[in-house]
Design a protein around this nucleic acid. Structure first.
Lengths: 227, 227
DNA sequence: CCTGTTCCCTAACAAGTGTTTGGTAGGTTA
DNA sequence: TAACCTACCAAACACTTGTTAGGGAACAGG
């Protein structure tokens, strides 16, 4: 009897699954909803670390439990499946990401300033959600195939619309080069930013803002010396 | 260092393998080496496609066999493990990659021309080994932990030496900017090139050379309009 | 004391995993 | 014809996987 249908309906319309609304409401069956959202977040963090390090499919639920100092079955007191763990990790990350992005996009900046703000915000998110970003990078393609993770595809389209639109606006305004394939430029900028999550370590001697500054300098002005 | 021959002989030499096969004396008549290398390459191609699409761990040996129109056990006439399949895929790719890279590095070009040639060569390799590159991107980090895939680490170090060295030479020669963190620049260039394998499709309307040209234009001169 | 809740453990299950063993149809060679 | 080789199938084996059921220790409030 495969259960785990409940988590799906809750986040269908990207309704943020904030830990504050955990305890109550019609609890009906479900269960697996911890009373302490703190422990839940703690476990999700270790799960995210293992997922990011080993890959989702290569990560066994026993490994996560081991890392958390408990046994495999005990995890199911807090979560109702391995899938729901990665689901919550990714949806939490995307919710926060779009909080930041929407604020930038609503600020009414020019194209170049918007790109700069988006890149900076992206590196801040990488700093805060390194593991989640790494998981997103590696697994979103497979996961998006399942209807449960449809919000990944939605997010990706919204993402493309925001970035590509800003780039097009910049070309129209004459601040970005018009001799480049705009789609290629979009993928170029997008990838250069997000793959950084694969090597970024928060303990490094570069702050997210400093990395963003240098990346923007390279993307906007190039690495060659001007004559 | 990593050659296809290496991968093969290595598996006979250190045939320690997993402690799974308990009890039995491992007479191991070897075999599993097909007489027709054509069929072998054919199967490796379909395996690479599935690995690239689903991820290595998520790919079952039954799925590969299914895609090849045969049963799971039949694959073991050609290969002696799932691991050896991905091994051969990656080592073959890296061998060809370094054939190209070494030729470029031996040409005695200037820093800028070397970078241009390396980027162009990289996109040609992505064109030829799209699946292998995608697998390398996703799985090399986990696989490199196993001693069998030590050549992945070797290759990565050689890679860094070649690219970073060229960039440093360019800074010394005054053709690349000196105000950037050189390691950051290296990761920037490296990542921008190789993540392209995640979206590149050989049927696309851009040739590898054309993509390389535009990428180089962006990396070297930036996407902003000069005033 | 009893009762209930929280959080974990023990122990198992069924499905799926990579892999092995033995067999066999069809072609080639002697 | 008989022996042989290639390339596959059929069926299992040993093990791992995510998941579940039941129980129990610790602690709370009454």
């Amino acid at each position: 009897m495969p259960t785990a249908k409940n988590a799906q309906s809750a986040k269908n319309a990207q309704s943020a699954k904030n830990p504050k609304s955990a305890g109550k409401v019609r609890s009906k069956k479900t269960a697996t909803v911890s009373a302490s959202p703190e422990r839940r977040r703690e476990l999700l963090n270790t799960a995210a670390e293992v997922f990011a390090a080993q890959g989702y499919n290569a990560t066994t639920v026993r490994k996560i439990a081991d890392e958390a100092g408990m046994l495999a079955g005990s995890l199911y007191y807090h979560f109702d499946s391995k899938e729901s763990m990665v689901d919550e990790i990714l949806s939490t990350f995307l919710t926060e990401l779009w909080d930041g992005y929407d604020a930038v996009l609503a600020a009414g900046l020019g194209p170049r300033e918007t790109i700069e703000a988006l890149v900076t915000e992206s590196f801040r998110e990488i700093d805060r959600h390194r593991a989640a970003v790494a998981i997103y990078q590696k697994e979103s393609k497979h996961l998006a195939a399942q209807p449960r993770f449809g919000y990944l595809t939605d997010s990706q389209q919204k993402f493309e619309k925001a970035w590509l639109g800003t780039l097009e606006r910049g070309v129209a305004d004459g601040v970005f080069r018009a001799d480049l394939d705009i789609r290629l430029t979009y993928r170029f900028v997008r990838d250069t930013v997000w793959v950084a999550a694969s090597w970024y370590r928060p303990a490094g001697h570069h702050s997210p803002e400093e990395i963003a500054r240098q990346y923007l300098s390279m993307v906007l002005d190039g690495i060659a010396v001007r004559e």
